[in-house]
Amino acid sequence: MTRQIRDVKVLNNREISKGVFILDLSTGLVDAAIEPGQFVQVKIEGSRETFLRRPFSVHDYDASTGILSLLVQVAGPGSLKLSGAGKGDSLNIVFPLGNSFTLPLNGERVLLVGGGCGVAPLLYLGKRIRKAGIEPQFLLGFRESRSVLETGEYELVGKVSITTEDGSMGEKGFVTQHSVLSVDSFDRIYCCGPEPMMKAVAAYALRTDTWCEVSLEHLMACGFGVCLCCVVDTTAGNLCTCTDGPVFNIKNLKW
């Protein structure tokens, strides 16, 4: 769909883990195409500390109802303010922005790797992959059991494996150490999370010669390719995370 500036209504805001919220927004649109991996820029009104919009991945989206969900982790004044949004509040967003994940082909085996709140774009991606007839494997890494996000929605879409760094839930260690990687092999890996984690997953993908896309999060001012602040160093030079990304194939990144 064409990018637009739009006032949307908050339908629901619930805290799913300490400091992590899911906001359901009514876009008022019907059958608008928003793709997995795209993001929205949310205006945070009323504070000199939140001058710029805040980018959030599309966590979930239902084209038939026009309801779009964001996963918001409180990390600063912008996300803190947003976490306090209540039912009926209006938010001004610019969307949909950025490119999207490349969907798999029929019969391919798919792994979705998320770290912490980096799982944000993977639920909608998983749903779209499932709709296309493929059951994806989720591999979700967290620091400890307390920070594990609820996985019920992911389990409706595919198989879910968990790692925690302290072993308090799922397998102990990092996602790249999980047994699913030694038991199964995959045609496509999709990954989003902290950069060290994505680099480790990218290294695994390169080692095993597996196709891999990652979704990057860089500081940005505009979100639509004019400020040139969110650049990432690629084989094609500096590219904008907001318009050339946020999804990049790892073979194009200088990692």
């Binding site: 939140t50 001058f51 860089h218 500081l219 940005m220 001012a221 040139l228 602040c229 650049v231």
Partner: peptide, 12 residues
Amino acid sequence: PYPRMAETASGM
């Protein structure tokens, strides 16, 4: 090089 942007009070 990145980072090229820093949000500041009422500006950037």
